[in-house]
């Protein structure tokens, strides 16, 4: 538990995976869209794992943070397109707005819902996502149900060439960087007091309380961090890449379900799990769509069921047990 040499060695495999995706996409340009999809799933899992994996709490409204981040970037670009010479400043402001808005939403939701335990928390969060979507549509804020289309604004700010490069290439690169950053933050948390507190509360919240751990504080830290990465993911993978946002797309609940599957498949609370889960999930989805188009979800459900029954700790959780006490222990975390 104390400082020991090589405590950050575990970053090597996870960062190598993100770098590998990038390199593969550059070497095989016709596979870039596949890489973009895989990066999205890995990043989604990595961000969600910061909360679900570290605390053991399931947030069924998680995609709301991705959606709000998407709006953060969309609003920034559409409002700032008239500002002379703003250029890349608009991107920075957009990312900050995305992070800030998802952080604020997570504080508002967390302050109420994180007082609830386990299943009650899960139930309470289901409503958040749908509620927020209908709030945007019903109250007609942020252009209501018409959404925001800002491809014109993107061109006005950056010029045609750069705007295309941003949505077809750089948006995906940002997603890879955000996923890798989420992994770095995860390991920093794991190796600090925060991680010990979160592990303790995940394993036994009552025991954590009686030894003096301020559990609510650490739950909120994990919740906000996870939400911020989700917001950044939305700002890049959805806003920047698609150049439009509609409420039903931004708050589509099946992304929450996919995030849960990825984290469970890879191993909740592990560092490497979301990448393994994201790759497994993304590749199987891609492959099933080719060999059995239209049937992928029907086939995918039982496959996931079998994996979760056979490896309840996820792929990486299982591997971690296998390498305990060996030299690989430091790398598979």
């Amino acid at each position: 538990m104390s400082a020991r040499p090589g405590k950050y060695l575990a970053l090597i495999p996870v960062l190598a995976a993100y770098l590998g995706m990038f390199v593969f996409g550059r070497v095989q340009p016709d596979m870039w869209q596949l890489v973009a999809m895989l990066a999205f799933y890995c990043c989604l899992g990595q961000a969600f794992n910061l909360f679900l994996g570290m605390t053991g709490y399931v947030d069924f409204g998680y995609v709301a943070f991705v959606g709000v981040g998407t709006y953060g970037m969309a609003l920034t670009l559409s409002r700032l397109s008239g500002v002379e010479g703003i250029g890349f400043g608009a991107l920075v402001i957009g990312l900050l707005a995305a992070a800030g808005m998802s952080a604020m939403l997570s504080i508002a939701v967390g302050a109420v819902a994180l007082r609830l335990r386990g299943a009650y928390f899960a139930i309470a969060t289901i409503g958040v996502n749908e509620g927020f979507r209908y709030f945007i549509e019903g109250a007609r804020i942020w252009n209501g149900s018409e959404g925001i289309i800002f491809s014109k604004d993107l061109r006005a700010i950056f010029g045609r060439e750069t705007a295309i490069a941003l949505s077809t290439f750089w948006a995906d690169v940002f997603v890879i960087v955000i996923g890798a950053s989420a992994a770095v933050v995860t390991l920093i948390y794991m190796r600090s007091k925060i991680g010990f507190a979160l592990t303790a509360l995940r394993e036994d919240e009552d025991a954590a309380k009686v030894i003096g751990i301020f559990v609510t504080k650490y739950k909120i830290i994990a919740f906000i961090t996870s939400a911020v990465f989700a917001g950044l993911l939305g700002a890049t993978a959805w806003a920047l890449k698609l150049t439009y946002v509609y409420p039903p797309d931004a708050f589509e609940i099946h992304y929450t379900v996919e995030a849960i599957i990825i984290v469970m498949l890879g191993g909740a609370g592990t560092l490497l799990g979301p990448v393994v889960g994201g790759l497994l999930y993304g590749l199987s989805k891609y492959w099933l769509a080719i060999i059995l188009p239209g049937f992928q979800l029907l086939i995918f459900a039982p496959i996931i069921l079998v994996i979760i029954v056979a490896f309840p700790e996820g792929t990486v959780g299982y591997l971690k047990k296998k390498v305990r006490g060996t030299a690989l222990e430091r790398y598979i975390v």
Partner: peptide, 23 residues
């Protein structure tokens, strides 16, 4: 709150075996 009371030297052994099983 409980975490401040622990600093003052008060603690509780809760009912049932509340330990951290994987540690």
């Amino acid at each position: 709150p409980s975490h401040d009371k622990v600093d003052l030297g008060l603690t509780l052994v809760p009912e049932g075996k509340h330990l951290f099983p994987s540690m």
